[in-house]
Every structure is written in C-alpha cells, then in structure tokens.
C-alpha cells in the first residue's frame, strides 16, 4: 500500500508552470470570480446591514425551516444510504441492476418535474394525498412534502459515496469476523463502519449542501407561504422578486458559506484524524492521506 510519490520537484519545467497557470486562471474566472462578486455585493452596504438583514424575522424563519428540512433529509438519507450501499454491494438478488439504475434517476430528473411528481402523487386532491390529509398528515404545501422533495433530490449522494469504498475493500474482513462468531451488528460496527466512515461523512456533507441549496422542487411543492413553507432559497427568490437584491445576496452568502464551511471542516478533520492514526512520519506528505481515504466519488 505504498503511495505514489507525486511527480513534484522544486525545479518545475515551463510547460508545467504554464499548465498550472492555465488551470488557476480558468478556476479563477469560472469559480472564484463569481464567488468573490457575490460576497462583495453582500458586504457592500457594510457588515452591520449584512447582519441586520439576516436578523429579520422572515430570514430567520426561512433559515430555521431549511435547517429542519436539512436535518430530516440528512438523517434519513444517511441511514438508508448506508443500508442501500451495503445491499447493493454485498448482496446479489434479482433486480439488483434495476436498483442500481433507479438510484441514479434523481440526478436525471429536472427538479421542477420532481416537484410536480410529488403533487401528482401526494397532492391533497390525489387519492393517497387526501387519505393522508384526512389522517392529519398533509404532505404537499406542508413540511412533509418538502422533506420528501429533499429526500428525492439527495438520495443518490450517500449511496454513491459509500458503495465504491465497500466494493474496494471487499468483504474478506467481514467474513473473517462472522466466522469468528461475531453477529452482523458487531461486524458492522467493528469492521464495516470504520472503513466507510469517511464515505458516509462526505456523502452526508453533500446531502446537507444539496438540501440547503435545493430550489426548483421546493418552489413547486411548498406554495412559498411566508413564515410557513418559505425556505432559505425561496427567500432568496422572494427577495429578487421584491427588488431587494441585497437580501438575496446576503442569504446566498450565508447558504454558500454554510455548506462550503462544512466541506472545508470535513477535509480538515479528515486530515487531522488521519495524521493521528497513522503516525507522524508518513503524514509529512499531504497527498498520502488523501490517497488512501478520499472516497472516490464515482457515481
């Protein structure tokens, strides 16, 4: 398991420098430029106005609703995502290929259609929806519908982060454990979970980021009722519609900052944990850690 030494040397050739410069220029233009433009516009009227905007009750309530949806979606899709990854990789059964394909469908469906689909199926005037609503569980235009939309949109993320790792490590260790008499829960806890934990963490982080930012499906499912079903992204949309671009930029900065901060924190935690676990002498080379643990996000 010796990692490859990156082909870096202090004396870089000119073509290499040129390549790095080109990549950085492209990156700056495409990713950094817009991000800086966003933050600049959010901060333009001053830091006080930034927080004042954020403290408005509509903004706080929309953030709180987004937090609730994100929490529910992340918990559900992480638990079931792990389960589905295990089923997909470790079990062979009729329909496994189908399952594999269906898992990617949420990527392929335009969010507007995803929302429409939930209304067709669970809307209060549909058969299922009216039943549920009679039982006191209205779906569409209420919190459950928005959670469903979030679940749909983010379903593949955890599975696709965990499954490749499971596949790569194989099932030898698990089998040894079970021949030694460990029950499946112990095997899962002691063997499987530690190997896939970074995949889980990374997948869940993506789920959080994606559900913080979901817009199209929520616009259709929520009814955009201020203070009841208005999420943070719908708040952004509303601010654009009421000629308050500043409010839109502020909330966007917060949303982007939250998910981005999370991704960075994850990376940092991963590097630190790894250094502690694998001792100091190997961790001098930062690429070593990444090599062994970065989950391949190959969907």
């Amino acid at each position: 398991m010796k990692p490859p030494k990156p082909a870096t040397s202090p004396e870089m050739t000119w073509p290499q420098r040129f390549l790095i410069a080109a990549v950085l220029a492209w990156f700056g233009l495409l990713i950094l430029g817009p991000a800086v433009a966003l933050v600049r516009r959010a901060m333009e009227p001053g830091i006080g106005r930034f927080f004042a905007k954020l403290a408005e009750p509509d903004a706080i309530e929309s953030l709180w609703l987004t937090a609730k949806i994100t929490a529910a979606v992340t918990v559900c899709n992480t638990i079931f995502g792990i389960g589905m990854a295990i089923v997909l990789v470790r079990q062979r059964f009729w329909g496994r290929r189908l399952m594999d394909g269906v898992l990617d469908l949420p990527f392929a469906v335009s969010p507007v259609i995803a929302g429409l689909m939930l209304i067709i199926l669970y809307g209060p005037r549909s058969t299922i929806g009216s039943r549920l609503s009679d039982m006191g569980l209205p779906i569409v235009y209420h919190l459950p519908g928005m959670i469903l939309a979030g679940l749909f949109v983010t379903l593949p993320l955890v599975v696709r982060s965990v499954a490749p790792i499971l596949e790569e490590v194989g099932s030898d260790q698990e089998e040894v454990a079970s021949t030694l008499g460990a029950d499946w829960w112990t095997t899962f806890r002691k063997i499987t979970l530690p190997t896939i934990r970074w995949g889980i963490a990374y997948g869940s982080a993506l789920v959080v980021a994606r559900s913080l930012g979901e817009f199209g499906a929520l616009l259709v499912v929520s009814g955009n009722i201020i203070g009841r079903t208005q999420t943070a992204t719908l708040y952004v949309h509303d601010q654009v519609e009421s000629f308050e671009p500043h409010g839109a930029y502020v909330m966007s900065t917060v949303l982007a900052g939250l998910s981005f901060g999370m991704l960075i924190a994850l990376e940092a935690v991963r590097n630190r944990t790894h250094r502690q676990e694998y001792g100091a002498e190997e961790s001098q080379d930062p690429s070593v850690e990444r090599k062994t643990i970065r989950p391949t996000r190959r969907h």
Partner: peptide, 20 residues
C-alpha cells in the same frame, strides 16, 4: 395573516393541488 406570493398560474395550480 399567512401570505403566499407566487406567479399567478402557479398559485392557481397550487390551489387546485390543495393549497389551502
């Protein structure tokens, strides 16, 4: 008051779809 501001067509569809 609970207020919802949508595009007119979307509002109509939402009410048809059960928005109360």
């Amino acid at each position: 008051f609970e207020e919802s501001y949508l595009a007119s067509g979307a509002l109509s569809r939402a009410i048809q779809g059960g928005f109360d």
